[in-house]
Design a protein around this nucleic acid. Structure first.
Lengths: 213, 213, 213, 213
DNA sequence: GATGAATGAGGATTCATTCAT
DNA sequence: TATGAATGAATCCTCATTCAT
């Protein structure tokens, strides 16, 4: 009985009975997808090219993902999980006690770092090509991150009413993505300067709101 | 630039006429392209669909544009020209005397207005899907606007050294595009609020730089 | 203006402006489809194979037909039209005065003949593989023919109430299709015998109903 | 035939057990196949979907059947066996003494009943999609049934010469399949009426042949 | 025996582009 | 010039079948 076998080798509650090989393939495919997404963008990425990049046949890809969108969704989940595992817990309630500039350092530095290590994160975090049309593959990452921003802001700006928090969060996140793109696109020598610039934008935007308390 | 090319090879009336028809066709095609780009995005737009939207055959489209990219480039030119014709001259050296908040109003209000009237502007103004890979179709608009931002900033912040101006211009423009997307995506009731937010971000970012003078 | 051009070269009221070449291609493709359907059945027929049989590229096929089903539907229409044009008018109200055996000869002989000349007719006339699931491609032909059978029967059996006519028509048509298959599948030497047999089945089935008058 | 092969190579208890498990698997797979064939038709059925329906892996399916066709063949055998076991022996030489209408009732009622209980029977009994091309998977059932019809007819119409018997048998069987489809496709309220109709067709067709004696 | 992974050719369909009329 | 026809490689995805564990 496969369940028993699976139950003995893993503590996760997932009902899928997958062999170790399969898990490896999935990781391999997601990595390939990340590469291809970064190289050609989501819409430019073909399932065949992802399979080729992973060194498997198209059929194999479809054994693990029902379609192209699912790959992006899963990759998004994966990156989000990795993000939380890697830098996520670095942010603690204690940070809310920090002055704004230090808070921004504490939040942004790991995030920028993570974006450098996982460029696909940026690709998936971006909204859809066509504004207004929410594609599921990007939305998960996007809204997860956005929610996080809202939570932090709500903690940091307790005096601000909810609707404003939402708007500020959207704005902050949009600015972050824009700045992040700039940093990624900048020549290495300029990166730190753009990082500083991004922090400046956000600091000056948020500082007056903090002062309201 | 087709105008220059054509202008140099014919000054007589008959070719002029033919050109007139051609210009109409081109305008028709560009309008169709603008619609399709807005609806489906650049990569989602097929040349056939643009031709269909314009009510002409694919062959006709290719009589005026060598390929899909050229349509985007030309549309970018077109929008830029229209932008300059419509609101461009509204900005005069006199504006540089205004306080920052009024300068931002003077610059941003028409630009936001124009983006609402020409949603394709936003589509083309955005950088390419794939960061780092500069596609010609978007670049023209992008770099034109960017240069303009640099000029204004250079005029407004005379004390700031050139490399910093460039960086600030990139930042300002990136933030503008991000904010513009937010405004366009927002529900009508929220648009003004997001507009205010965008102005706040830019004002607070730039204000200290002005104060340096 | 293409409409004028078209209007001068054809009297049909079809709004499609199609070049003569296109019409030829369509005929060619339909003929190819007929061949392939006969050879491999509807579900076994691939659009690529139809295009190949027609000697054109897959893209060409899709210029004229939006999908595989449309080919079958159009072929059905085509065959139905040809059937009516060829033998259809052979049946006149006068036939209703004939004794049953002669009526059957008058109706069946041309139909059998036509099925021999157009084997795809039989393929499309058959119901779908999966009983209960009506596929549009077969249904047009099927229901057209069925309606025709009903009309003839209603004229010939005026005493029979409507619901019975419907049931008898279904039965007659089903028997005809079954018998037709037998005739087509039979070795040449046996064909006439099976034709006789089919007529016998139908004659003996219907004769008592006629006698009721 | 797997039973023979297995039976000859092992008579001990342990292999017997293994075989018993195999038989269960086979039954399970055949039942799944029957379901899938009824739902999607033979050509629409994928081996993977059959395996899924049976709750086993594709590999397991191929441990018992060399290919898709073999599943249909085996299912045909199975159904034939079940048919004989269930209703088959209900027909005895004594029936040949009955008048035709009673004979038809005696033969058709169980057969129709069985088709209702085993819709896959009808799917497999039908000839191939492509007339003229005999596919092995359907042929077994088809020819078995046909032979049975021939035997009964030969017994019932002793005066009729062999070749005629064959032809009549083909005709009777074809008409039966057509009528059966009608019955299965009919709305429940109409089923009995179509059953009556089918019997009428066959009775009137055969009655004169009986009278010849 | 059972599983799930792997295959790769083939399916329908699209699309940027070129060609003949 | 304008049209619609033509292309063929590429797209996403499926499937019968085989393989490794």
């Amino acid at each position: 009985m496969p369940e028993a076998k699976n139950g003995s080798e893993s503590g996760t509650a997932k009902p899928r009975r997958r062999q170790a090989r399969g898990e490896r393939r999935i990781a391999q495919l997601l990595e390939a997808a990340a590469n291809v997404f970064c190289t050609t963008g989501y819409s430019g990425a073909s399932t065949n090219s992802i399979a080729r990049e992973a060194g498997v046949s198209p059929g194999t890809l479809y054994q693990f993902f029902p379609n192209k969108e699912a790959i992006a969704v899963e990759l998004g989940d994966h990156l989000l999980t990795r993000w939380r595992a890697t830098y996520g817990q670095a942010f603690t309630p204690a940070h809310l006690e920090l002055p704004l500039d230090q808070l921004l350092d504490a939040v942004l530095d790991p995030l920028i770092q993570f974006n450098f290590e996982n460029p696909a994160f940026g690709v998936l975090m971006h909204g859809p090509d066509i504004p207004g049309q929410v594609t599921r593959e990007h939305d998960a990452l996007h809204s997860s991150m956005l929610t996080r921003v809202e939570e932090v802001l709500a903690g940091y700006l307790p005096a601000t009413p909810e609707p404003d928090i939402t708007r500020v969060a959207h704005t902050v996140f949009a600015v972050f993505k824009a700045g992040m793109d700039l940093i990624l696109a900048a020549e290495p020598a300029e990166r730190d300067a753009y990082t500083t610039e991004l922090k400046a934008v956000l600091f000056r935007y948020l500082d007056p709101l903090v002062g309201d308390c």
